[in-house]
Amino acid sequence: MSVDKKRGGAAARGAVAATVATAVLLGGFGGFSLWQDTATGGINDSITTGQLRINDVEAGDWYFAANDTDMEVLGWPFDEERPIDINTWLVSPGDELIYNTFANVLVTGDDMLGEFSIDQSSYTINDPDWDGFITVSVNNANQTIFPDVNVQRVPVKITVKFSDQITGLLGQDAANVIDLSALTVQLDQVQAPTPAPVTP
């Protein structure tokens, strides 16, 4: 091998080494690191969460919603809630039975708002003929519960509606049509609040 070739190889290796050394000095192959400093800015303020809970639901009373003008034939004014004995009342298609009760709730938090709903998995329709023809809902689901430092006693109106679309002999003479023994009322936080009432 000639002396020139040896010198050429040595020069090439020297150039590569210089490039590597320059990259290391610049912070490595991954990036360019500039000066950096940190300072501790501790915050000693306490942050506390609010609450959204149902303390209990009181025992209520059953009513029949006379919301059909035909009920006036029976002497029942239209759109009236008449108290009934749920254990002796015989349901027919189109009936709406209302359970009026109160829930004692605690809603705190500066921007906390709640609304009632029904856990649709918490009741059972026992008669297969009525499956799909009964709905359970909270009439005042759109009523917003505003925050208060005290427990609030809020009216809850639960409606059990029997569809007027069931036909023929389906669903007749059925006992214990729906099991409400485990019915669960939910109180959910809402993200799109209705305007708060104006305090006089």
Rank of each mutant, 00 (worst) to 15 (best):
S33H: 01
P83R: 09
M112W: 14
M1I: 02
V149Y: 08
G9H: 06
W130F: 01
F29L: 09
S33R: 05
I98K: 09
E72P: 03
A175M: 05
A11G: 01
I86H: 04
V73Q: 05
G109L: 03
T144M: 09
T199H: 01
L113V: 07
F133H: 13
G8K: 15
Q186N: 11
F102W: 04
V20L: 10
L34P: 04
K5T: 14
T38G: 04
P147W: 14
G168W: 06
F64H: 09
N126T: 01
E81Q: 15
N55Y: 10
L26F: 06
D111I: 10
W89C: 02
G42C: 06
N67I: 12
S46Y: 10
A103E: 07
T49H: 06
V190Q: 15
N126P: 00
F64V: 04
Q186L: 12
L90E: 08
V73S: 09
L113N: 13
T144I: 08
P195T: 13
W62M: 08
Y63H: 09
V24Q: 13
T69Q: 13
N176A: 12
M1G: 01
V160P: 05
V107Q: 05
T184N: 12
F116S: 01
R13G: 09
D111C: 00
G31M: 01
T48A: 00
F116E: 08
A21G: 05
V20S: 01
T22D: 10
T194R: 13
F162V: 00
A18K: 15
S92Q: 14
V3C: 10
M71N: 05
T22E: 11
A192C: 06
T194H: 04
F162I: 02
K5I: 15
T199A: 10
V138I: 05
G171L: 02
V154S: 03
V91I: 14
Q152H: 10
K161E: 11
T38V: 15
Y99W: 11
I86D: 00
D70M: 09
Q186M: 10
T19C: 02
I54Q: 00
A103V: 05
N150Y: 00
D4L: 15
T184S: 07
N87D: 08
G31D: 05
N150D: 01
W35D: 14
T199V: 15
G41S: 14
Q152S: 08
I43H: 03
V24F: 03
G94H: 02
P200C: 00
G132K: 14
I86G: 00
S92F: 08
Y123G: 02
Q189A: 07
D179E: 03
D110W: 15
G171P: 01
D85K: 07
E72V: 07
A23T: 01
F133C: 12
F29Q: 02
D119N: 12
L187A: 12
N87F: 04
L106M: 10
A141C: 08
L183Y: 07
S2E: 05
S137R: 14
G132Q: 12
L113C: 11
A10I: 07
F162H: 08
S163H: 02
V177T: 14
I98P: 07
V138W: 02
G28Q: 02
G94D: 07
D79W: 00
V16N: 03
I118Y: 09
G75V: 05
D4Q: 12
D131L: 13
T38I: 15
R153I: 04
